[in-house]
């Protein structure tokens, strides 16, 4: 039994231009659907709460850049807010669509699956970078002079860290049905546990590299471990090395994600 192609009309041939056009639209669609989601509302709420905390802190008498970093930015922004931005968009972009089964409408399109993943990853990256950069700027501005000094120290690490977390969470959301919970388990449990361990095991955590970048860039403000024991325990690497590791890890995760997504069968859809 032979099968022949019907003569497709000219407008139906899916050229490279059409793929690019569809990807650009998918990028806009992803941005718009994520911005209009409940996650954005919750992000607004949490950022407002953080802003209140920093506003309260800024009324202290004695304020230093080191104090602002240790008591506000590290635990509140780096430890909580930035990963939450990454989870909110990273997990829900593919994981959320799987949950409500609307992913099926993307998978029936002629956009190659790898391109769907990459387009979504870029959209998530833009959102997370905007939220991280915006929230950091707001918090530093509210903190006054110490915050303004630290803004440029924190910005590169926040952007790279946010992108790295987003890449991890996007991959988990695409691969596992409960990707959000796995993302939380990784960030809230494994990262915290491993970062406190001695030795080199902490090098598999994202926050280790973020801390290395921050301590390196903020050495003039005496950021980082105070004494030799803490320094030995932390066993940091240079900021540049940490940045290189993060950049290559992001690229690696995006490649891995697009490969895995292009091979993955979503049996629950449809």
């Amino acid at each position: 039994m032979s099968v022949v192609d019907s003569n497709l009309p000219a407008q139906q041939t899916f050229s490279v231009m059409r793929t690019v056009r569809a990807c650009v639209f998918l990028f806009r669609l992803t941005l718009w659907r994520q911005i209009a989601s409940r996650q954005t509302l919750v992000n607004f709420g949490l950022t407002t709460l953080c802003a209140l905390i920093v506003a309260a802190w800024s009324h202290r008498g004695h304020r230093t850049a080191m104090g602002f970093s240790d008591y506000m930015l590290l635990p509140t922004f780096i430890g909580f807010l930035m990963p939450i931005f990454a989870i909110s968009y990273g997990s829900s972009t593919i994981g959320g669509e799987r949950e409500d089964q609307s992913l099926i409408y993307l998978l029936v399109t002629p956009i190659p699956r790898a391109a769907i993943y990459l387009t979504k990853a870029i959209a998530v990256g833009v959102l997370v970078a905007l939220w991280s950069g915006g929230a950091l700027t707001l918090l530093c501005w509210l903190a006054g002079e110490p915050g303004q000094k630290l803004l440029l120290v924190y910005l590169p690490a926040s952007l790279l860290g946010g992108l790295m977390y987003a890449s991890v969470f996007l991959l988990l959301g695409a691969m596992f049905r409960h990707g959000t919970i796995l993302s939380l388990a990784y960030w809230f449990f494994l990262e915290v546990l491993l970062l406190q361990m001695p030795g080199t095991v902490k090098r598999i955590t994202v926050s280790y590299y973020i801390h290395c970048m921050l301590y390196d860039a903020g050495s003039s403000f005496k950021l980082g471990p105070r004494n030799d024991a803490d320094r030995e325990m932390f066993a940091g690497i240079s900021g540049d090395s940490a940045a290189i590791v993060l950049v290559f890890s992001i690229l690696g995760l995006m490649t891995l994600g697009s490969y895995a997504f292009s091979k993955r069968e979503y049996t629950e859809l449809g």
Binding site: V3, V4, D5, S6, L8, Q12, F14, R33, A36, D100, Q101, S102, I104, Y105, V108, T109, P110, I111, P112, R113, L269, G270
Partner: peptide, 26 residues
């Protein structure tokens, strides 16, 4: 046609109306 159904090029020729009652609700 001549394409593998999994491939992106095959999907241009297929329209699918799923049973599941989900859409882009907004």
């Amino acid at each position: 046609g001549s394409h593998d159904a999994w491939s992106a090029s095959a999907k241009q020729r297929v329209g699918y109306c799923p049973e599941v009652d989900t859409l882009y609700e907004e």
